[in-house]
């Protein structure tokens, strides 16, 4: 009988996290960078649910519940910030947002 072990789930979560991290590093559009950040968060929740299920406890699942809540609030504030930034500077590209550099 084939079965999925904890290592499989953790591997998938790790790969998703890596994909999100790579996106955060190489993308220049702030909105896409933000989506990649969300993907990293979702990958972490996958690992939490897997640990929770394999350890037969509810705590990890509850933590995922709170992560989803916090992520929703965070997305609202972050997008409002990006819109405010766009209104001031007219761009959402992290290449052109270099005021603190010069």
């Amino acid at each position: 009988m084939e079965h999925t072990t904890l290592a499989h789930h953790l591997l998938l979560a790790g790969l998703l996290f890596t994909a999100g991290l790579a996106g955060v590093i190489i993308r220049r559009n702030l909105l896409v960078v933000y989506m990649c950040l969300e993907l990293m968060l979702a990958a972490a929740t996958l690992a939490l649910v897997a640990f929770s299920r394999f350890n037969n406890t509810m705590d990890g699942a509850i933590l995922v519940f709170f992560v989803i809540t916090v992520a929703a609030a965070e997305v609202a504030v972050g997008l409002a910030l990006i819109v405010a930034l766009y209104r001031r500077t007219g761009t959402v590209s992290s290449d052109q947002l270099n005021t603190l550099c010069d």
Binding site: H9, L16, A43, L46, V49, A50, R53, A61, I68
Partner: peptide, 14 residues
């Protein structure tokens, strides 16, 4: 897809 993995882990509500 992640939601589907949650279902496979029996975390239906999540």
């Amino acid at each position: 897809g992640i939601a589907a993995e949650f279902f496979l882990l029996d975390a239906y509500f999540l």
